[in-house]
Nucleic acid binder design. Structure first.
Length: 271
DNA sequence: TCCCAGGCTTGGT
DNA sequence: ACCAAGCATGGG
């Protein structure tokens, strides 16, 4: 179905480093697997987007997944009206970015894997993980693999996790899966927590530190004030903000600000 | 080949 | 509490 959406650009979302199972399939189209479903999405023009999926899945899943009920215009305008020249340019460059509402468990595993890996390498490892432990499904002839549950990974041994290019992160993934599968850390409870409490709880997981916990809060819990600082954001802060970025300036939507910064710095300045 | 990648854990002060 | 080394492996 065709939808008219402002501040929405599929290519920018796919290349913004927040999701790892969204792939270009040509003709301004992308495939995506999330919440055990398969979607093809095409950008027809600036404000027209085609969603190829079951009709009911758009309303019950994808509209929420792509955060279509959040007013990004408000964020864009408040940055336009600021004195922040760097951020103005970043918004102009990536004004179609949205913060996705991804599955919490998948986001945890994905960002544990992400540490000291390039985005293509992250995507490759996650796809291997899904092909090995996920459920094989198909939608209109397209075969895809779901993201494996904590329980399925928890019952593996260290040997079972070899061949996925996890490297030293293999033990983090196995320990985290076990911790969640046995109820030591409860994701349903975390979903109800404040950003601060959720981040504290997430950091109990093996392989989850400050940065990964903030990414999980932002992309897996829609805590849009979370401000993950990775090497690219560090570069932004050092280069354009004199080494300190005051998160009080954009209080309430620092995560969206962070995403504009990341996308602009990483893709515009490939230094 | 060399360097870097959406960092974390551990052990030493 | 802070700091630095070590970490496995793919991709450019």
């Amino acid at each position: 179905m065709i939808k008219n959406i402002v501040h929405f650009n599929v290519q920018q979302i796919a290349d913004s480093g927040q999701c790892f199972r969204m792939n270009n399939i040509g003709n301004n189209s992308y495939s995506l697997v999330a919440f055990n479903k398969y979607l093809e999405i095409e950008q027809l023009d600036k404000n027209q987007v085609v969603f190829r999926c079951e009709d009911e899945d758009f309303e019950t899943l994808w509209a929420d997944y792509f955060d279509l009920n959040y007013d990004y215009g408000n964020v864009v305008h408040s940055i336009h009206n600021s004195e922040d020249d760097f951020l103005k340019k970043a918004v102009e460059y990536g004004e179609g970015i949205r913060i996705l509402k991804q599955d919490l468990w998948e986001t945890i595993v994905s960002f544990i894997i992400s540490q000291r890996k390039s985005i293509p390498a992250i995507k490759s490892t996650i796809e291997k993980l899904c092909m090995k432990f996920g459920e094989k499904k198909s939608f209109e002839g397209k075969v895809y693999y779901t993201f494996p549950s904590p329980e399925v990974i928890a019952e593996q041994s260290m040997e079972g996790l070899q061949g996925l290019a996890l490297g030293y992160r293999d033990k983090y993934i196995l320990n985290t899966a076990k911790t969640i599968a046995n109820g030591e850390v409860n994701l349903e409870l975390i979903k109800q927590m404040s950003r601060e409490d959720a981040i504290l709880e997430l950091k109990k997981l093996s392989g989850v530190g400050e940065k990964v916990a903030n990414c999980v809060a932002l992309y897996g819990m829609h805590k849009i004030d979370a401000f993950p600082v990775d090497v690219w954001i560090k570069r932004v802060v050092d280069t354009y903000y004199g080494g300190f970025f005051d998160t009080n300036t954009y209080k309430g939507f620092n995560g969206i600000v962070q995403q504009y910064m990341f996308y602009y710095m990483k893709n515009k300045y490939k230094s």
